[in-house]
Amino acid sequence: MNSNMMKNNKNFNKVSNIIESLTINPSPDSVAVLEEIGTNSTIDEVRELTSRALVRRNEFESLSVVIENRGKGINDMSTVVAMSTINELLSLENKEEAMRVLENTISSEHFDDEVKENARSVKALMALS
């Protein structure tokens, strides 16, 4: 299914609305739902929407999901999802929380080298932007 067909799909629009509602839902449980259902979806477009929603929440927990986890957000196997997440991070008005998560990821010993490397690259991009 191409992107145009996806955008015209009723169920995709419903999924999109749910993700959008979880973006503005003040409950911290929203992040857990987005991570559990959205980021684990087999559909690239859903993972992309979920990652962007987690970035837009601009909270330590939500940003940690897309920065620290292997195979999610900036570390997603899909280039489109990873790049879309990075773009969303770069377009944040307040980047303080994102920088804090990135620095934490780079300095921590708990994460893979690949995750650290990605975090370092994104931090460099954010510093330049």
């Binding site: 799909n9 169920n11 995709f12 419903k14 999924v15 609305n17 749910i18 993700i19 509602s21 979880l22 503005i24 839902n25 409950s27 449980d29 929203s30 857990a32 739902v33 559990e36 259902i37 959205g38 979806s41 087999t42 559909i43 859903v46």
Partner: peptide, 22 residues
């Protein structure tokens, strides 16, 4: 939907919609 409880209300809807999309 943003005023609903994420776990008890939104999550089942999310799963259902995602299954339908798949």
């Amino acid at each position: 939907m943003s005023k609903m409880d994420p776990h008890s209300e939104v999550k089942p809807m999310f799963q259902q919609a995602l299954e339908a999309l798949e």
